[in-house]
Design a protein around this nucleic acid. Structure first.
Lengths: 346, 346
DNA sequence: AATCATATCGCACAGCCGTGCAATTGCCCG
DNA sequence: CGGGCAATTGCACGGCTGTGCGATATGATT
């Protein structure tokens, strides 16, 4: 339909058949195709001489086993889906990268599903993952509908959820509540009495948990509490939260931010627009410890979530379930480390 | 070998056979497997009634076509590799995310190869991509050896390179030289005479190109030139470059940073350690325009590379080549937009 | 030297799918 | 009511691979 005349009839749709097959290697090596297959199957029985011939021929032709066909046979593909919205931002970016690295190390193929929050997009992504017989799915964010879990379950695809409390799936979570309680406590013990939390209106479960644990602890301690929220949980939301928290005459003297991105926005707003000093006038604590937190402009006291550790745990959970699909859901809790920098020193 | 006794002999390794096959759907619908296949093949001839029966059965069983087997048949897999080192950082993170999004939109499966710089890792990654019959490979960074290109060529895998001048492959590049010349020119025209570039000792081709174009232009204008380099091209390297550039008595009054990350490090160092004002004492221009560049703490004047545009171009080049493998290498040049903020106003 | 055990090899099948081809059905019109 | 045509359908093949099983070749042993 493009421009060329009708194809020559010899190779109607072999156009793209550039990959070498085991048959061709067998022919060149003068052995049967089985011998080729066995050469590339660990533990199979091949004579050293045959193996040598095959390897030589394979080398010459540039052969590599077709993992697709292998997957069809074994009904398994070594593909693992990483599902995330905005995988380029903040902690999620580090998590996704760490997952990709670990998955590759164990011989899996990480496929990055960058999807919006809409249900349709998520289900379309799932269709792809089922169609390609993905071995497992790791979800970094978003709130998949129940049908998502159901469909994965039905197709025997292990599901690992990071940062969300889905009771029917394997999950990895940070100790959000402990950390948030600690944040409120150290603020209070340092003499701060007007405690604020900067969160999000469309928060993930993690964000919500951090907000509420901080708030209840702060109230329990008898502090005055403030809430500022932005539309999302990024830098702009931090600015919005700052605007909400510091536009009244009575202002908080300590702000716990539900993640570092929010903290950066809030710090910038507070310093540049409200002209307050950090930590003298306002103390700040964040969450995640992304690299920017240690930048000289921020020097943010925060709770470290190590993306390497969380990714490792997620992959371990996945492997565990692949080994035994009938296990009860696993739960890995990673306790964040309190990292003290300039924005608040207890 | 693990722990269980010998398997029961009935289902030796069907353990994971949870996915539904077309055969089962055919059986339930009371038609032949061909009818099922045709139902899911656009443009095939199926009676509406049959189609309906098949769809109903498929829905009930939760069937989805096995794209692996389909790929084996067509010798094509819809998998596309995205190869990057440190895909979590800076502009690359945005590029990778944009690529993933566009690839999914066109029905491809983006696989994220997070690899180190070593040749072994790269070649191992390539093995995976060949083994899974990846349809194409997009390279974001790193300097693959010649054998990488050769092997991809040999297997008919289109290769798109972003930000590097590999003459034998399709490539997308920013107008590094134009932008860098412009940076030197606007500095000079604003009266700055001691012009510095902050780059990297292990720079990518883009970084190197920006450095040298700026330097030659600055020299040509008759300015005094300085060079500061860090080990990498990230925030810490910016600090290192700052240390190198501002430890002597004669200091630059304008610094062009090879990317935004370097600029952030340098700005922080200059302001916090050397106690200079930006832009009064030192003007700064960066490159990339990542979101952090517009943060209040930086307000960085920079050259915008739009990751969406570059990703789109890369995918277009890929599609073009898939349509016609024998085309000469394509070259898409994306001209960066000069974004003026506080760190320097011409 | 004959026999036995063992390691290898090739055949054929299974695991998915798309599709050409021939056979069947159904329909329309004369 | 019969014939011709088009639409549909099922069969069988092809595209890759791993692997059980019987058939060899090979070496060792008596």
């Amino acid at each position: 339909m493009r421009d060329g005349p009708v194809s020559d009839g010899k190779t109607p749709k072999k156009e793209r058949m550039r990959f070498v097959s085991a048959e061709q290697v067998a022919q060149l090596a003068g052995v049967s195709r089985s011998a080729v297959s066995r050469t590339f199957t660990p533990g199979a029985s091949v004579a050293p001489a045959t193996r040598e011939k095959v390897l030589r021929a394979a080398q010459e032709l540039g052969y590599h086993v077709n993992d697709l066909a292998r997957g069809v046979l074994a009904n398994q593909s070594r593909l693992v889906g990483i599902v995330a919205t905005k995988p380029e931002i903040g902690f999620r970016a580090h998590l996704a990268a760490a997952l990709a690295k670990f998955l590759i190390q164990r011989g899996s193929i990480p496929i990055l599903i960058n999807t919006g929050q809409t249900e349709d997009e998520l289900l379309a992504a799932q269709k792809m993952l089922i169609g390609h017989r993905a071995e497992a799915i790791i979800i970094l964010s978003g709130s998949p509908p129940a049908s998502f879990f159901e469909l994965a379950q039905r197709n025997g695809q292990p599901l690992v959820v990071i940062g969300r409390s889905e009771p029917d799936a394997d999950r990895v979570r940070a100790g959000n509540s402990e950390a948030s309680r600690k944040a409120a406590t150290v603020f209070f013990e340092a003499g701060r009495r007007r405690l604020a939390v900067a969160g999000s209106n469309t928060g993930t479960p993690s964000i919500i948990e951090r907000e509420s644990a901080f708030l209840s602890t702060a109230e329990g301690l008898g502090a005055e509490v403030f809430i500022g929220r932005g539309a999302d949980s990024d830098y702009e939301s931090g600015i919005a939260a700052g605007r909400a928290l510091f536009s009244n005459s009575v202002r908080p003297d300590a702000v716990y931010c539900a993640n570092d991105q929010i903290a950066f926005g809030l710090m910038d707003y507070v310093r540049q627009e409200v002209k307050l000093r950090i930590p003298e006038d306002v103390a700040i604590i964040g969450f995640d410890d992304v690299p920017e937190a240690s930048w000289l402009s921020y020097q943010l006291t925060t709770f470290r979530q190590d993306p390497l550790v969380m990714a490792m745990r997620a992959v371990e959970l996945m492997e565990r379930r692949l080994g035994n699909p009938d296990l009860p859901p696993g739960y890995e809790r990673v306790i964040p480390e309190f990292v003290i920098r300039q924005s608040f020193r207890p």
